[in-house]
Design a protein around this nucleic acid. Structure first.
Length: 565
RNA sequence: UGGGGCGUGGCCAAGUGGUAAGGCGCGGGGCUUUGGACCCCGGAUCGAAGGUUCGAAUCCUUCCGCCCCAGCCA
């Protein structure tokens, strides 16, 4: 119920514009597009754009195209195309038949380039990249016209044709629009339309050796596909005059409108391709799908449900203000979904042995446990109980501080779905470390209720020693120690050395050993955990997706109390 | 001394002249066989200063702050 339903998404300024366009009859079908460049992995920031574009399309009964902006063969690869498709699908979106590539339009784009040349609105420039930069001027000074700016149409046509034929080496010449070298908007100072790149393209192979730039491609691609609203991030706001210039000066079949919104920033997280790549290359994480990564593949492996990502993208809204969303909001969405859907089980991460002195040596009892208190339909399961059990080390304290109400010497607690037990004796090793608890159980409390109405302050999870399955559990914390990594310089210096803790020798109730890789379950009282693909039949591996809200941890943090155990 | 944007509670974010929604977080309390979930309660005068108006976060003026742009990247 805290989850916004898909149909009721908030009307942000973009949806308002679109709604108005529909109302006025400007468009009868709303068409959007998600236009990734296939040069990297998708991350949570892309999810915001995906959620917006596909969400808008669905809300207005329109459609959303998936279009790869593959205009730079030196950076793009087929591998990325596949991972992007998989990630968008996993997020729960469907582009139907509308799967395109900017490279599908290369021929048409070229014709349009010729058109501009014929109109005297584009020219071939022989200046080098450095010279072009020098001529461009600065932010406060106007640029200077290239000496090649006034070539004849015939010469430009000839040169452009020869560029295409491959007569010139990379960088020898470019095709530029003839707009205004004195414009305050640098994008309008005769932007480059085509560059020579003798590179093989993932899709068009060696058919081309000149490739259109983003600016000369995006708007026209939108127009070709009949995109009505082209939604992009703020840094393209400066490009809009150029986007419109092409639409104004070319015989395009439709008139899309570009609207910009603020990209996502997340606290304790880094989202630029460059930084993400650096994390992988320098080995700060185990790969693109490391569960600590904000990539869609990392998030998936971590155990975040796609629904949580969708909820999150709706919850954060769309606006033009630069902002940093608290990662706690994402975690909230994850817990919200998992609380509803994840089945529960008992797992003890750091086992402490408990021997029930008054429980028969070889007896095993079967008790009934609820699989998901939020979902009666999930049913129940049987858990086995015996004389030797294990509880969480941190659930016992020999000298309990004021607000600690779990197990302690002489204290009685409830073992969930089982019995009340009382700690009678603490066994330590030579080092003085607690290695075992001798306890007694109350046979009258079977199932967890006392006939006399006694109610222990605490209920603990546990596993039966004879039946438990061991596992490795990977505990994650934020990858960075501060909300704004890199604000003081090198973001790598803000890496959290404790972002990954591998705990071996964890004990699972048998049912948890069956959880298939990719499924997320709740380890009661601890958090949500996702079975990792690294799991093998004799080595179960789980990733902690997110902890449960932990009031006790907060109290400890506040009182500065150390976490014994 | 260029151009384009943005400034509402700790973080997101509604509000479009009529007297500040909601969410996250945080702090209280209730309930509880997860110190989970769930349920209550608690906080802003809207970057600043002027002005217009019966009335302004919403209109005007000035100022301050922050972000983006000088790739043949997207």
């Amino acid at each position: 119920m805290t989850t916004p339903t898909d149909e009721r998404a908030r009307a942000d300024f973009i949806r308002e514009i679109i709604a108005a366009d529909v109302r006025s009859g400007k468009h009868d079908t709303v068409v959007t597009r998600f236009p990734p460049e296939p040069n990297g992995y998708l991350h949570i920031g892309h999810a915001k754009s995906i959620g917006l574009n596909f969400g808008v399309a669905r809300e207005f009964s329109g459609r959303c195209h998936l279009r790869f902006d593959d205009t730079n063969p030196t950076k793009e690869e087929m591998e990325y195309i596949e991972s992007i498709e998989r990630d968008v699908r996993w997020l729960g979106y469907d582009w139907g038949e509308h799967h395109y590539h900017a490279s599908d339009y290369f021929e048409r784009l070229y014709e349009w380039a010729v058109h501009l040349v014929r109109e005297g609105k584009a020219y071939v420039d022989d200046l080098s990249a450095d010279e072009i930069r020098e001529h461009r001027g600065t932010l406060t000074e106007p640029g200077k016209d290239s000496p090649w700016r006034s070539r004849s149409v015939e010469e430009n046509l000839d040169l452009l044709g020869r560029m295409r034929q491959g007569e010139f080496p990379d960088g020898a010449r470019v095709l530029r629009a003839k707009i205004d070298m004195a414009s305050g908007n640098i994008n309008m100072r005769d932007p480059v339309l085509y560059r020579i790149l003798h590179a093989s393209h993932p899709r068009t192979g060696d058919a081309w050796c000149i490739y259109p730039t983003y600016d000369f491609t995006h708007g026209q691609s939108d127009a070709i596909e009949g995109i009505t609203h082209s939604l992009c991030t703020l840094e393209f706001e400066d490009h809009r005059p150029l986007y419109d210039w092409f639409l104004d000066n070319l015989p395009v079949p439709s008139r899309p409108r570009q609207i910009e919104f603020a990209r996502l920033n997340l606290s304790y997280t880094v989202l630029s391709k460059r930084r993400l790549l650096q994390l992988v290359r320098e080995g700060h994480v185990r790969g693109w799908d490391d569960p600590r990564m904000p990539t869609i593949s990392g998030i998936r492996r971590r155990g975040f449900p796609p629904k949580a990502i969708r909820d999150f993208t709706e919850m954060i809204g769309i606006a033009k203000r630069d902002s940093v969303v608290d990662v706690a909001m994402l975690e909230h969405c994850v817990r919200d979904v998992l609380n509803q859907e994840a089945r529960r089980g008992f797992a003890v991460l750091r086992p402490l042995k408990v021997v029930l002195e008054n429980f028969p040596e070889d007896q095993v009892e079967e008790l009934e446990a609820v699989n998901n208190p939020e979902d009666p339909g999930a049913g129940t399961r049987t858990v086995r109980f015996s004389r030797e059990l294990y509880i969480e080390r941190e659930d016992f304290m020999e000298e309990p501080p004021r607000k600690f109400y779990r197990l302690a010497p002489g204290r009685e607690v409830r073992l969930r779905y089982a019995y009340f037990i009382t700690c009678q004796e603490v066994v330590k090793d030579e080092a003085g470390e607690v290695v075992e608890l001798r306890c007694t159980y109350d046979p009258a409390t079977r199932g967890g209720d006392a006939p006399d109405g006694r109610r222990p302050k605490a209920t603990l999870h546990w596993v039966s020693g004879a039946h438990a399955v061991s596992a490795e559990v990977r505990l994650y914390e934020h990858l960075f120690t501060r909300p704004d990594p890199g604000a003081d310089g090198d973001f790598a210096a803000d890496l959290n050395p404790k972002s990954l803790e591998v705990v071996e020798g964890c004990l699972l109730e048998p049912a948890l050993a069956e959880v298939p890789a990719g499924e997320t379950v709740q380890f009661e009282r601890l958090g949500y955990f996702c079975a990792d693909p690294d799991s093998t039949p004799d080595r179960r591996v789980f990733n902690r997706t997110v902890t449960l809200r932990d009031t006790w941890a907060k109290i400890q943090a506040r009182t500065g109390g150390p976490t014994k155990a």
